[in-house]
Design a protein around this nucleic acid. Sequence first.
DNA 1: CTCGTGACTCCCG
DNA 2: TCGGGAGCCACGA
Length: 111
Amino acid sequence: MNRTKIDEADKDFSQRAKNTIKRIPKGKVATYGQIAALAGSPRGARRVVWLLHSSSLKDKLPWHRVVNKQGEISLARGRGYEIQKQLLMGEGVTFSLDGRIDLDRFLWRPR
DNA sequence: CTCGTGACTCCCG
DNA sequence: TCGGGAGCCACGA
């Protein structure tokens, strides 16, 4: 049967989102909402979460460069937090004492 | 179909 | 600054 435009839109979102994540430069970070917006779904931050859960490993996405809008790692300690922090620090990203990333300095701003 | 869940975000008090 | 509630979207039981 034919695909609907909705199906195409969903597929399109997933592709765009993955491509967007792959475009994040080393040493920079992006927010869930930012990626969703760039992929065409301004309110789809949670879709990005699902995408990472389902494809981060399979598609080798730089998932560690995705943080929440406060510049904080959203993963719980013992469930990826330490790993992500290490990966980011390894790329030169610094954290404040309260565990936040200075987005004025590290947020990726595609042009 | 309804309900629960999640690496989100926004709004209020 | 902090916590709760609601909106958001997709997926699986």
